[in-house]
Simulated assay, not measured.
Amino acid sequence: MKNWVKLLISLALPQIAGISGALFTVTGEGSWYRQINRPSWNPPGWVFGPVWTLLYILMGIAFYLVWKNNSADRLKKPAMTFWIIQLVLNFFWTLIFFGAHETGWATLEIIVLWIFILLTILAFFRINKTAGWLMVPYLLWVSFATALTATIWQMNS
């Protein structure tokens, strides 16, 4: 497969996951999210779109750098599998939190997501250092999102 096709697929996959998750993300007036208790440090709603778009682009570039790399399959296969798993978990967090309104389950799920992001980063570093570093902002954002999710769960239990 040509590298430009790999790049397009790599950039499209996270965006598709993000757009799919956005279908369950209702935060407007009268929404469940507006009615629950949230901490004072909850970011304004307009922050999430640009942040996630940038993170999805970085994730896609990182995946591309690993996919096109000439490393042995014994290194690439687990790295790419971890990346796909974390992307699926990313989608399911949105479904659990915004779709099902299950803040406790969302807290547990985001912790599992965080672990898979870390596993992805460690596997990517073994193949391409830049790919590993491109995933770090995502891990930092999900660390913040984990604290936010757990706090919302606690505040609404």
Rank of each mutant, 00 (worst) to 15 (best):
F144S: 12
T151R: 04
Y56H: 15
I36R: 07
L113P: 02
Y33P: 00
Y56F: 15
I9L: 12
I127C: 08
A62Q: 02
D73I: 11
L89Q: 01
W153T: 07
R34L: 15
L134G: 08
T27R: 02
Q35W: 11
V142T: 12
I121T: 00
G30W: 10
N37Y: 12
A150W: 13
G45T: 11
S20A: 10
N128R: 07
V66L: 07
W32V: 07
K6A: 15
G60F: 06
L140V: 15
L13D: 15
M155G: 09
P137H: 14
M1P: 14
K6T: 13
I121W: 00
A72M: 12
S20V: 01
V112M: 01
A100Q: 02
S10T: 04
T53A: 07
T53L: 13
F97N: 00
G28I: 11
K129T: 14
V88K: 09
V47S: 03
V88R: 08
A100D: 05
I61P: 08
F124K: 04
V51G: 09
K77L: 13
K6I: 14
K68F: 13
F116H: 01
L58F: 14
W46Y: 10
T103R: 08
R34M: 15
H101R: 04
S71T: 14
W4Q: 13
W153K: 07
E102H: 01
L134M: 06
F144G: 03
E109G: 02
I57P: 06
G132N: 06
Q154T: 12
V112H: 00
W141D: 13
L55E: 11
F116Q: 05
R74Q: 14
